[in-house]
Nucleic acid binder design. Structure first.
Lengths: 234, 234
DNA sequence: ACCTGAACACCGTTCAAGT
DNA sequence: ACCTGAACACCGTTCAAGT
C-alpha cells in the first residue's frame, strides 16, 4: 500500500538507496500482508519505490528473494530463542526444548507463508543450522547421545521449527453442521463416530473443529515423551 | 514427450474424446516426469493432444487440476491400503497402522510432488477423509478412545499419509567433506560434534547423510510408542 | 456438445542504455 | 555504481467463433 520510500519531489527526502536488506524486508512485509501469491517482482519493486528491473541489481532472481525471506524468518526465530534463559541440564531438557519450539511457533504464526517457502528450499541455510545446533545443545544437556540427537531431529522434523502443517487459515471451514456429518456415517463410520463423540464432550468447539495450539502441543509431547523414554534406557 | 493421443491423419485412430479423467491422468504423468513446475495448462494440453483452451471445457481452472491430481494420489493410496488384510485387534493395532502408513509412503515416493500440492489444499477431500476413517478404524480396534484417536491424528499429522518432509531429492547434497564441517565447529559445536560422531560410527554414510527411510520409521515409531503408552493408561 | 484462435493481463527476466 | 525502458518468452484465462 504505502511505499517505504516516497517518490521524492524536489529532493525533500534523502532517497535511501536500494539494498538487498531493504528488498528482503519489503518482501517479508508483502508476504505477511497478502500471502506468497502477492509477492511478485513488480509488486516488490513498487513497495520499495523502484522499477522491477532495479531489483536484479541487488538479488539474482526471485528464487534468491524466496531464499532470503525464508532465512529472515529463521533469523527472527533465532533472535527470540536466543533470549531464552532456562535450565536444560538433566530432566530439564524437555521443558527447555518445549519452550524453544513453542517460541519458534509464535514467530511462525506471524509469517504463516513461511512453512510453504521452507518446503521448497533445501533448508540448509546457516540460520537453520544454527537453530538446530541450539536444539542439539539442549538435548546434549539432557544426556542424549549424539546418535539419539540425530534421530530426534528427524523425528521432530518440521515440528522443531514450530510447525508441522495447518498453521494456516485458523478460522476456516466453520459452518458445518452435525446433520451433514450424520449423512456421511455410512461411508465414514469411524470418522463420523469420532467427531460426534468429541463434539458431544466439548460442545462449544463448533463441531469437530480443533484448537490447533492444543493439538500441536499434544503431538509435540507425544514425541518428546517418547524420546525421554529412549534417553532413560541409555 | 509422446502424446497420449497422436494427431490422427486420415482418421486412423478413433480419436478418444477429452474428459476430466483423461486430463487429470495426463497431469499426474507430467508432474511425475517433470515436477510441478512442468505442469502448465499449455503443456497439459499438448500431452493430451489438444489446445490449452479445450481443457477449460473439462476443468474449471488450474486450481481444479491441482485439486484433482492431489485427490488422484490419495485414491491410489486408498486402493493400495484397501488390499491390506492384517489383524488389528488389541496390540496388533500398531503393526496394522505401521503397515498402512508405510504403504501410503510407497505410493507417495512415486509422486514426490504430491506433498507440495497437499499443503496448499484444504486436505478435506473425500479420499483424504476415507483414508483417515480407515486409520481411526484400526486405532479403535486397538482400544483407542475416540478422543485419543482425535489427538493421534493430529500427532501423526502429515506422517499419517506417509510423509512429513524430505521425500524429495534423495541423492542431493552429497559432496561435502569432513574438513568443511570441522571449519564450522566454532559456530556450530553441537551440530558438528553430532555429525562427526555419527559419521564415525557409520563411515559409509557419505558423511552426515541419512537413510531417509530409516529416519522416517524412527520418527514414526517414537510417536506410535508414545500413543501406545497413552492407550495403556486408558 | 465439444473444441479452437485470437487476445488480454500478467509473470520473470535480458539487455542495452541512461545517470 | 546504481537504476531504468523496451522487449521477450511465458503464464492462466476470456470470449466469440467454429464444427
Amino acid at each position: 500500500m504505502r511505499r517505504l520510500v516516497a517518490r521524492n519531489k524536489a529532493g525533500t527526502e534523502p532517497r535511501v538507496p536500494l539494498s538487498r536488506e531493504r528488498v528482503l524486508r519489503a518482501a517479508v512485509a508483502i508476504a505477511d500482508e497478502g500471502g506468497l501469491r502477492a509477492l511478485t517482482m513488480r509488486r516488490l519493486a513498487e513497495e520499495v519505490g523502484a522499477e522491477a528491473m532495479s531489483l536484479y541489481y541487488h538479488v539474482a532472481n526471485k528464487d534468491e528473494v524466496l531464499d532470503g525471506i525464508a532465512d529472515a524468518v529463521v533469523e527472527e526465530i533465532n533472535e527470540v530463542v536466543g533470549r531464552i534463559d532456562v535450565p536444560s541440564r538433566g530432566d530439564a531438557w524437555k521443558a527447555a526444548v518445549r519452550r524453544r519450539i513453542l517460541s519458534a511457533r509464535e514467530v511462525l504464526l506471524r509469517h504463516p507463508w513461511a512453512p510453504g517457502v521452507f518446503e521448497s528450499r533445501t533448508a540448509m541455510s546457516p540460520a537453520v543450522l544454527r537453530y538446530h545446533d541450539g536444539l542439539i545443545g539442549l538435548m546434549r544437556d539432557g544426556g542424549f547421545s549424539n546418535d539419539l540427537c540425530h534421530h530426534a531431529l528427524h523425528a521432530l522434523g518440521s515440528r522443531a521449527l514450530g510447525f508441522s502443517q495447518e498453521l494456516f487459515d485458523p478460522g476456516s471451514g466453520g459452518g458445518d453442521d452435525t446433520a451433514a456429518l450424520e449423512g456421511m456415517a455410512a461411508e465414514l463410520p469411524h470418522l463420523v463416530g469420532m467427531f460426534m463423540e468429541v463434539a458431544h464432550d466439548d460442545p462449544d468447539s463448533t463441531l469437530g473443529w480443533c484448537d490447533d495450539q492444543t493439538e500441536f502441543e499434544f503431538g509435540l509431547d507425544v514425541i518428546l515423551d517418547g524420546l525421554d523414554r529412549l534417553r532413560a534406557q541409555d
